[in-house]
Amino acid sequence: MTTPGSLDLRAVGKTYAVDGRPLTVLQDIDLRIEPGEFLAIVGASGCGKSTLLRLIIGLDDGYDGDILLDGHRITGPGLERGIVFQEHRLFPWLTVEENVGIGLEATSVPAAEKRRAIREHIDLVGLSGFEKAYPYQLSGGMAQRAAIARGLVNRPEILLLDEPLGALDSLTRVHLQDELLRIWTQENVTMLLVTHDVEEAVYLADRVVVMEPRPGRIRRILPIDLPRPRNRAAPAFAAVKETIIQELRR
């Protein structure tokens, strides 16, 4: 393997104990994500999408099967994986700059280098001029951008995004989708995006994973072969979108 960032899920399952009884949330997830790929996951609420991301990021290591990153089993959080949560989870007591910088706190990068990386990533997400702002002074979209910058600042091989645009109005969302594409090409990072929005998945992803609930399984994986930039109004786009919606309805 030459470029790092390939993720291999083999028969991954997750069972919670709820009131002493087992509740299977994920079952038999087999999935391979190629380096540099943009993969989207769609599925009904409660089908285990966030749980899957939590397993991959390493917040929960009590699972069945194997999750391999570049061939090694994941046992805990690591800086080669980044995540952007649905709520931005910026620390309210840190400025934008400090919030992005905390992504580098655990690294031994020299201070000057850190400052440069922080500035670059603030530029990357288009927040220049807001370095000293506190989260309460940001709009929802700006806060999500800052969270994306924090997720990317230590140059992870793979970035997990858990419905990062879910809480935004549709105009801002469409705008940030283009930004995500730009960042993806610019940073050459593998992206794994969870979303409720089928159109968003079709617009962004190389492949879309459709999940079904109770217990959470993969129903189908659809490659999106449309050339970028994609046109949401094109008939081919609508056709793919319709196929996925049909899958979700079944």
Binding site: I57, G58, L59, P77, G78, L79, G82, I83, F85, E87, R89, F91, W93, L94, I102, G103, E105, A106
Partner: peptide, 24 residues
């Protein structure tokens, strides 16, 4: 949720205390 962010960023205990728990 904030403690989880600290874990994801692999902060040490001391960093967790100083940057997350104490200010929070």
């Amino acid at each position: 949720a904030y403690r989880e962010v600290a874990r994801v960023l692999t902060l040490s205990r001391w960093q967790l205390l100083r940057r997350v728990l104490l200010p929070g």
